[in-house]
Each structure stands twice: as C-alpha cells, then as structure tokens.
C-alpha cells in the first residue's frame, strides 16, 4: 500500500479515534488525519508547479507554518476547478488548508471573486472552531489562497486585478508595520504589553503607542470580536 492509500484508510487510527479525547474539534481531526486534496511528494509538487494556473506559497519553516497552494481555474467561468496543497505546520494548519481546498472546489468550484471573499473566520467556522491561539493557521490558509489567485492574475495578464496588501510602518525606529501587529494579535497577544513583548513595538518610538493600541483593538475585534 502506498502512503496515499494509507492516509485515505487511516485504519489503525480510526479504530482508536472514537473513544478518545481530542484537543481540537472532530472536524479538525477528520481533516488532519484524512486530509483532502493534498499533494504527496516533491515530484507531484513539481508537476503541479508546471501545470497549475495559479501557485501561492506563504509562511516559512522558521515560523513553524508554511503552505503552498496550487489552483486550476477555468478562464471562462472563473471557477476554481481544482485545488491542491502542501502544508508544513501543526494539526490545525493542515486541517485549515484541507478545509479551504474543500470549500474552494465543492459544488462545481467557487468563483474567484467569491473565493476572495472567504475570511479566516469562515475557514475556522467550517472546522467547527479553532483554539484562539491557533487562529493564525486559518489566516495563513486564506493568505495562501490570495497568493495563488494573484499568481493566476499575473500569469493571465490581468495585473490590474492583483490585490496588494501593502504594509504601513507604524514604529518608525524598529520599522514595525501594521502587519506585524496583526500577526502578533493573531498569535494571541491581545493587549499592548504582550504585543510589545512580542514585537518590541514602541520601545524606542514612543509616539506610535496610541496608534498601536488602536490597531490592537481593531484586529482583536476583526478576528476575535
């Protein structure tokens, strides 16, 4: 039996799963142990690089999460006809990418414009929730999708449609951006003190503190409100 078949079956595990306590939701468990639409092996990934309409990669192994997403898109209908992925990360990162791939391809495939409306909360909701400190996993899935769609826009000469999320420098001395603060909030820092501990924001550039506090409130409400 090859690895792909083993993952589909996951027999040994399933037999035991029923009665066990589990850290995440049942849906996360399902998508972690039996992920959907994954690409197994480096070779398959290389093949997909060549033939996909859009490829997106976000995160890094140093951060503990990295995702790569391959999309097949029908030009005429702008529907996503296929979505494959690979993920390095924890269980909720794997489950988030798996769930996102299902959301994109179910019911004949989602239209690009519709797909771009997906929010990290939507992925988390379909997974029946993620623990707060794992919420960034669904954000990463969302970002991978955006990167893949942008790649499609570029490849098809639709540069005008590329969505650029520019970062704004908040802390002028340490060059800390609003993205960094967003990232910190997503990782569980919900007040100024913890965000500062994580990012060192405002340690030298005291003038930015009110703006940082405002951003923390904004992102806290956006993701957790």
């Amino acid at each position: 039996m090859n690895m792909e078949e083993k993952i589909q079956l996951h027999k040994d595990v399933e037999a035991k799963v029923e009665s066990k306590k589990w850290f995440y939701s049942e849906t996360v468990k399902e998508h972690f142990f039996k992920p959907k639409n994954f690409l197994l092996s480096e070779e398959k990934a290389k093949e997909a690089d060549a033939k996909s309409d859009g490829v997106g990669q976000v995160g890094s192994p140093a951060c503990g999460d990295m995702m790569k997403m391959w999309l097949m898109i029908d030009r005429e209908s702008e529907r996503i006809t296929d979505c494959k992925w690979q993920t390095f990360g924890c269980a909720s990162a794997i489950a988030s990418t798996s769930m996102l791939s299902v959301m994109l391809t179910e019911n004949g495939g989602m239209k690009i414009e519709e797909a771009l409306q997906i929010k990290p909360q939507d992925i988390a909701a379909r997974l029946d929730g993620l623990p707060q400190r794992k919420f960034h996993c669904s954000v990463l899935g969302d970002k991978a999708l955006r990167a893949a769609v942008n790649d499609y826009f570029r490849k098809t000469g639709q540069d005008a449609r590329v969505i650029v999320g520019g970062a704004k420098v908040i802390d002028k001395i340490l060059k800390i951006t609003d993205k960094d603060i967003e990232e910190a909030v997503l990782e569980g820092a919900h007040d100024f003190e913890t965000v500062q501990k994580k990012t060192k924001v405002g340690v030298y550039d005291k003038n930015c503190i009110p703006e940082v506090e405002q951003l923390i409130r904004f992102y806290r409400e956006k993701y957790f409100g």
């Binding site: 040994d12 972690f32 924890c90 960034h136």
Partner: peptide, 27 residues
C-alpha cells in the same frame, strides 16, 4: 512540525511531548 507527530502518536496510545510552537502559549 512536532505537533503533528505528537498527535498521530497519541492515536496509537503513545505519549510524547514537544516544546515547539504549538504546545507553548506564545507559539
């Protein structure tokens, strides 16, 4: 990532631990 291994081993009744991102509060 350590956590994936930890959770899969757990399904076989094997307990191990990771000091990596996913078990700590701060990631």
């Amino acid at each position: 990532e350590g956590e994936t291994l930890l959770l899969e081993l757990d399904q076989y009744g094997i307990c191990a631990s990771t000091g990596s991102a996913c078990t700590s509060k701060t990631l």
